[in-house]
Design a protein around this nucleic acid. Structure first.
Lengths: 224, 224
DNA sequence: GCATTTCATTCTGTATACAGCACTAAATAT
DNA sequence: ATATTTAGTGCTGTATACAGAATGAAATGC
C-alpha cells in the first residue's frame, strides 16, 4: 500500500480525538496548545486540521481558527440516513455484480466471527466486527466512492454507535440480521435485500440519537 | 454566513483547476512552482492541498507529495451511482418532510428558469441551472449531510457533465424530467418519484462516461 | 452600577529557512 | 551494451519567526 505519512497519522489521531469528544464540541482549538500537547509543530498540525475540515469533523472560520463540530441528534439522524443511502445503493449493485466467491468469502468470515461475537464483552470489538461486515458488504458493489463515503460516515458515528450498543439484547438480533441480509444477497433478491438492510440500519438510528443525548450529558458532567 | 478565508478561496481555485483538468491527472504537483504560479507561499498552499485530499480530488504520498487523481470512466460511474444514492435517499425523506410552500417555491423557480433554459447556448449556464435544481431538491430533505455529499460529487463531475451535455436533444427531455419529478413530489408519490429520479440520473451516466473518454483525448492532445 | 473604550496579551496567518529524502543522470563495472 | 552504483540537484517536511488581527481585562466615562 501507499506510504503512511506523518500528517496521515496526525489526522487519524485528531479524528479519533474529535469522534471521542476528547475535543469538546464547539470549542475553539488553540493551535499552540494542541501542537505542544501532540509534540508537533503548528505547520503539520494545521495541515491535519484542514483535512478534518473537509471530512466534516471541524469547521474553520477565518481569523478565529478551527472549531470542533458538535454532534447534535439531528446530525446523527442525517448521518444514519446517509449511511442507509450508501449501503442500499451499494447492495442495489452488489446483487448483480458480486461474485459468488466473494459472497462465499464473506459468509465464511461471518461464520468464523460468530463465536467471538457471542463471547466478547468488549463493545469496541463488537462494533468493529459490525463495521467490518458492513464495509465488506459495500465493497461487494465494486464502487470505491461509496466505500470512501461509508468510511467517513462510520468514523463520525463510531463512538455514538458504541455508546448506543446494548450488550444484552442487541447481539443475537444483529447477528441474525447480518445472516438474513447475506441470505438475500445470495438469493439475488434485491427487494428483500434492500428492505432488510434498511430496516437493520433504521433500527439502530433511535438508539444512536438517544445515545448522543447521554453522551452530551457525560461530556458536560466531565467538563463541569 | 461565515467569513471566507484566504485558504478557502485558494481551495476553491485549486478545486476548479483539478476539476477542469488544468492540473493533469496523475501529475505530481510541485509545490514551489504552484505557489509561485498562484502568488502564495507554500504554507497556505499545502493547507489547501490537504483539504483537497480529503475531498477526493488529490492523493498524497509521504515523501513524494500531492498528485492529481485521474478521472477514469470507472470513477465517473462510481460518482454517478453515489449521486443516485444521495438524491434518491433525499427524495425518500423529502416526500414526507418537504413543506408545500418549499415545493411551490421550487416549482416557481423552475417556471422562471424555463425561458432562459430554452434560449441560452451557454453550456455552463445550463449545467448550473440543472445543478441548482437538483441541489434544491436535496435541500427539501432537510438533511445537511446529504447536501454536503452531493456538493462534493457535483464539484467532481461538473466538467465531465458539461462535456457530456448535448445541446440539441437534451434540453426538452431534461426540463420535462424535472417537471415530472416535481410533479411526483407534489403528489407525494414516493415510488414514482424515486423511479423517475433514478431514471433521470442513469440516463446521463453513459453520456458522461463517453464524455470523459473524449476529455482524456483532449487533454493528451493538448499535452502532446 | 453599567456600558464603552482602550490597552495588553494571545492567537492566528504566512513567509522563510533548513534538514533530509527522493529522483535524475552520469559514470563505472560487469 | 546493460545494469548498478553514486553523486548532484531539487523537492518535500517541519520548525520558527514575525506581522496583524482578535479576544479579554482593566480602566474610564456616563
Amino acid at each position: 500500500m501507499m506510504t503512511e505519512s506523518h500528517v496521515d497519522r496526525l489526522t487519524s489521531q485528531l479524528r479519533r480525538m474529535a469522534a471521542e469528544f476528547r475535543i469538546k464540541p464547539d470549542e475553539r482549538i488553540r493551535e499552540g496548545e494542541m501542537a505542544k500537547r501532540l509534540s508537533v509543530s503548528r505547520t503539520p498540525l494545521r495541515e491535519a486540521l484542514n483535512r478534518l475540515v473537509s471530512e466534516g469533523y471541524l469547521t474553520f472560520t477565518g481569523g478565529q481558527g478551527f472549531f470542533c463540530r458538535s454532534l447534535t441528534p439531528e446530525r446523527i439522524m442525517d448521518l444514519y440516513e446517509a449511511r442507509a443511502a450508501i449501503e442500499c445503493e451499494a447492495m442495489r449493485h452488489a446483487v448483480s455484480r458480486a461474485s459468488p466467491a466473494a459472497i462465499a468469502q464473506l459468509a465464511d468470515d461471518l461464520d468464523r466471527a460468530e463465536p467471538l461475537y457471542e463471547r466478547t464483552t468488549d463493545r469496541l470489538a463488537l462494533l468493529e466486527m459490525d463495521e467490518a461486515f458492513h464495509m465488506a458488504l459495500v465493497r461487494l458493489s465494486g464502487n470505491a466512492e461509496l466505500e470512501r463515503m461509508l468510511e467517513n460516515i462510520n468514523g463520525r458515528i463510531r463512538y455514538v454507535r458504541m455508546m448506543g450498543l446494548k450488550m444484552e439484547d442487541g447481539r443475537p438480533g444483529r447477528m441474525g440480521a447480518h445472516r438474513t441480509i447475506l441470505g438475500a444477497l445470495i438469493a439475488r433478491d434485491q427487494d428483500l435485500l434492500l428492505a432488510e438492510l434498511r430496516a437493520h440500519i433504521e433500527m439502530r438510528k433511535e438508539d444512536a440519537t438517544q445515545a448522543v443525548r447521554d453522551a452530551f450529558s457525560h461530556i458536560y458532567v466531565q467538563a463541569g
